[in-house]
Design a protein around this nucleic acid. Structure first.
Lengths: 137, 137
DNA sequence: GTAAGTGCAAACGGTTTGCAGCCTC
DNA sequence: GAGGCTGCAAACCGTTTGCACTTAC
C-alpha cells in the first residue's frame, strides 16, 4: 500500500440547509458535544433537522477530518470542529468539569514510541480523569 | 459502638459457579476482552453462564477495582484483570496488531498536569493508533 | 428460611439504514 | 432530469433490567 492513494474519490457534499445548519451549530460552541446535543441545539434555534441527518452530516465531516470525535465514558460519540490545536482533556469524575490540556511532552513521547515499534502515520487519544479541587473539598 | 460505616457496607459477592467461571475466564487471557467475548469463551469451554450474568459479574468486579475497563472505538466496553502493570496500547489501524507500551514519561506528565489543575485521585487512558511496519510496506 | 444470584426475555439508548419524496446541480 | 440528500420509522447492537426461580449461607 503506497502513499499515493489518498482515500476515496469523495465528492463534495451538497450545501443543503441542514448541512449548513449543522456546520453553524458546530461553530456555536467549544469543546465536544454529542450528536443528540447538537440536534437539540438546532431544534431550539428553530432549525428543523432530522436526527439521522445530523448523524450523517457529522459522520461525513469526521471522515473529511473536519471534526474531531471522541467517545465518552458512557459510550456516546461527541464531536467538535477541529480547527484548533490538538489537545487533551482533564475531566472531573464528580462534576464533569473539563480542562483542555496540551503539552509537547506526550506528543513527543507517543511519536518516539511509535517509531521505535515501526509504526507510522500515528495519532493518539489521551484522557485524564480525576477529582477536581472543588469536588475534593 | 460497633462501627459507623460512612461508605457502603458492600458485602462480598457469593462464590457461585458462574462468578468463579467469569473470574477464571479473565485469568485465561491477557489484555482486554469484551463481555460478549468472555461470554463466548465460557460457552466454548462448556461453562453455561447467561450473558446478563457475565455483565453483572464484570460490573461488580469493575466497581471493586478487580478489573480495568476500557471502551473501544466501536463503543464496546472491554475488561481485563488488573493485576498486571499499567500500560497503554499501540494499535495498527490496518491489521489491528497491538503492542503493549509502558513508560514513566506519560505517567509523570499526566500526574504533574493534573496536580497543577488541582485534580486529585487521577487516572488516565491513552491509546496510540498508527500503521505498523508490515502494513506500511 | 431468606436474601443474593441467575436466566430469560423484554426494554433501553445511541446509532445506522431502507426507502419514498425532495432538492441541487 | 438524475442522483445526492432528507425525514421517518424500523432495525441494530451492546447493555441493562424486571421477574420468577435457584442457591449459598
Amino acid at each position: 500500500m503506497t502513499s499515493t492513494e489518498p482515500t476515496q474519490p469523495e465528492s463534495q457534499p451538497r450545501p443543503t440547509r441542514q448541512r449548513l445548519a449543522v456546520a453553524k451549530a458546530l461553530d456555536s460552541f467549544e469543546g465536544f458535544r454529542s450528536a443528540q446535543q447538537i440536534h437539540a441545539l438546532l431544534t431550539e434555534s428553530g432549525e428543523q433537522v432530522g436526527l439521522a441527518t445530523v448523524y450523517r452530516s457529522l459522520q461525513r465531516m469526521a471522515e473529511a477530518d473536519e471534526v474531531d470525535t471522541l467517545r465518552t465514558e458512557e459510550g456516546e460519540v461527541t464531536y467538535r470542529r477541529c480547527s484548533d490545536s490538538h489537545h487533551h482533556h482533564l475531566v472531573c469524575r464528580s462534576c464533569g468539569a473539563t480542562v483542555e490540556i496540551e503539552g509537547p511532552t506526550v506528543e513527543r513521547w507517543t511519536e518516539k514510541v511509535s517509531r521505535e515499534h515501526g509504526f507510522s502515520d500515528v495519532s493518539h487519544t489521551l484522557e485524564i480523569f480525576g477529582t477536581c479541587a472543588t469536588c475534593a473539598r
